[in-house]
C-alpha cells in the first residue's frame, strides 16, 4: 500500500500526515505537488488541512481546479480511497465529490480546540477500528468549519449512514453547545454513498502520538491500512 499526500500552495497539514504515515506507522508515502497529474502508483490520496490559496473566494474553491484534481476525480471514480482533512474536506465539497458546503463558523471565530466526537459509522474503510457510537477526541482548527447542507441532503446522509462523525459532549450528547462551529446536525465528517471518500473537519494527524495528548487520530490511519492490507482486527 502506498499513499500520496498532496501539497497545495498554502497547505499546512501535509508534513504532519507524512510524519504519521512514514515515521509512526512505517508505511510508504509520498508528498506530491499539486501540479502532478498522475496518481497511478497510489492506493490512498490524502488532501491535507491548511489554507490553500489563502482561502480566497471560498476555502478549497481555487485548489479544486489544481492540475492534480483531474487525477483525483479519476481516482475517486475508480473507487480508490480519498481522505480530506479540514481544508481537504472543503476541496472535496467544492468538487462535489461530497455533498454540502462550509460556512464561516457561527461565532465568526477561528476555533482551535479539542473536540469530542461521536463515531456514528464504523462500517467504513476509514473507521473500522472503532466501535459504533464510541466517543473519541480530536482537535479542530478552522474558521470555516461550519458544515451546511439543505434538508433533503441531510435526510439522504442520514438514510445512507453517510454521517461518520458528529460533535458531542464528553458523554456523547449532541447538544448545540458541543456543536463548536454551528454545523448542520453537529456534522464533523461525512462519507460518500460509495464509501471511498471521507471528509472530516477534525485533524487525526494531530492526535496520533501519546506525546501529543491523544491517539484517537492514529486509529483512522490504522483502520485504513489494516483494511487495505487485508489485516483482520
Amino acid at each position: 500500500m502506498k499513499s500520496a499526500v498532496v501539497i497545495f500552495p498554502g497547505s499546512s497539514g501535509e508534513n504532519d500526515v507524512f510524519h504519521i504515515l512514514n515515521n509512526v506507522l512505517d508505511e510508504r508515502v509520498d508528498l506530491v505537488w499539486h501540479k502532478t497529474t498522475n496518481l497511478d502508483d497510489y492506493d490512498l490520496v490524502i488532501l491535507p488541512g491548511g489554507s490553500s490559496y489563502g482561502d480566497y473566494i471560498r476555502p478549497g474553491a481555487i485548489a479544486r481546479y489544481s492540475p492534480i484534481m483531474k487525477a483525483v476525480e479519476a481516482f475517486a471514480k475508480e473507487g480508490k480511497y480519498i481522505l480530506g482533512i479540514g481544508n481537504g474536506w472543503q476541496m472535496l465539497l467544492e468538487m462535489n465529490l461530497l455533498p454540502g458546503a462550509v460556512l464561516k463558523n457561527a461565532n465568526l471565530k477561528f476555533i482551535c480546540s479539542d473536540t469530542f466526537l461521536k463515531l456514528e459509522n464504523n462500517k467504513t474503510l476509514f473507521t473500522n477500528g472503532f466501535k459504533v457510537d464510541e466517543i473519541i477526541r480530536m482537535p479542530i482548527a478552522s474558521g470555516f468549519g461550519n458544515y451546511f447542507c439543505d434538508e433533503p441532503t441531510l435526510q439522504e446522509l442520514l438514510t445512507n449512514q453517510q454521517i461518520v462523525l458528529r460533535y458531542c459532549t464528553d458523554d456523547g450528547r449532541l447538544t448545540p453547545e458541543a456543536n463548536y462551529n454551528g454545523a448542520t446536525a453537529n456534522i464533523a465528517g461525512i462519507i460518500n454513498k460509495e464509501g471511498n471518500i471521507l471528509g472530516m473537519m477534525p485533524h487525526p494527524e494531530r492526535c496520533s502520538e501519546d506525546i501529543l495528548g491523544g491517539t484517537d487520530g492514529l486509529r483512522i490511519f490504522t483502520s485504513i491500512i489494516n483494511k487495505l492490507k487485508g489485516v483482520n482486527i
Binding site: R58, A61, I62, L103, F148, D150
Partner: peptide, 8 residues
C-alpha cells in the same frame, strides 16, 4: 464555475 457556490 468559480465565484459562487450554488449550494449556499
Amino acid at each position: 464555475q468559480l465565484l459562487a457556490n450554488l449550494v449556499i
